[in-house]
Nucleic acid binder design. Sequence first.
DNA 1: CGGCGCACCTGAGTGC
DNA 2: TGCACTCAGGTGCGCC
Length: 282
Amino acid sequence: MPELPEVEVTRLGLLPHVIGRRIVDIYRSPLALRDAVTETDLRRNLRGATIVALDRRAKYLIFRLNTGAVLVVHLGMTGKLSIFEPHRSKAKHDHFAMRLDDDWEVRFNDARRFGTLLIWPPEMSGEEEKRFFGSHGPEPLESGLTGSHLYNAAQGKRTPVKNFLMDGRIVVGIGNIYANEVLYEARLHPAQPVNTIGREKWEEIVKIIRAILAKAIKAGGTTISDFVNAGGKPGYFQVQLKVYGKKGEQCQTCATPIEKKTMAGRASFFCPRCQRLEEKKT
DNA sequence: CGGCGCACCTGAGTGC
DNA sequence: TGCACTCAGGTGCGCC
């Protein structure tokens, strides 16, 4: 479910409930997630520790503890991380929970179990974090993402622009939905080879990425007041999507029916008239 | 090394 | 109502 804006909204929703709180106990279901972290490791590193910060890098949520230990949560495709008032009964697919010293609970619910939990103990958390995020590209909403960065990374490659934008080594946080939306706004065909795209076009792409993600976060922000007990479902639905999932519907610019094509195993939606493959894109 | 296909899972939706 | 089948927004691995 979550792309970067949903993860960021989750972070903002949790923040006021967890900072300064001590973790009293944890729960872990017996079912495997995409990791091999044991319940013992989780308990050993989390119980009794106080949450001092909650950060985000790419689509990972990073809980920093006063002991120096770090808990990393990735929501996968169906994961939700949310805060519950005391003594709420567990739901189906709750796989991890932290009870805080005010008896509120942070819960991780993930039907498809594509989510990830990582624990980095105090003595190695700095190194592990560096190693883990070392190959990740810049954050789309920070200064590291520039037109030049994308232009330089694209030289010598004929990768389709959609795959390129979804490649976390190039830039993090752009999933399938927003890749489709960005390319529509940029009037680029998803299969346009990246080495045919000029510097100015990359500058424009960066502006579009920022605008779309920021808008989605803002839309999600309006739902934060409903965040408690809401299963961590941020305001994803409020974002006006223009092409994603719109196969057969009229393009909002030219009324041509939106097409759907599978690229690198992922659904791609585009307007065949507004988003033409071309020799050069400047 | 780059790029692709696939595997990891459950649930929702569709067509018969 | 049920069954078979397809598809889903992420990521990392193995293989070419």
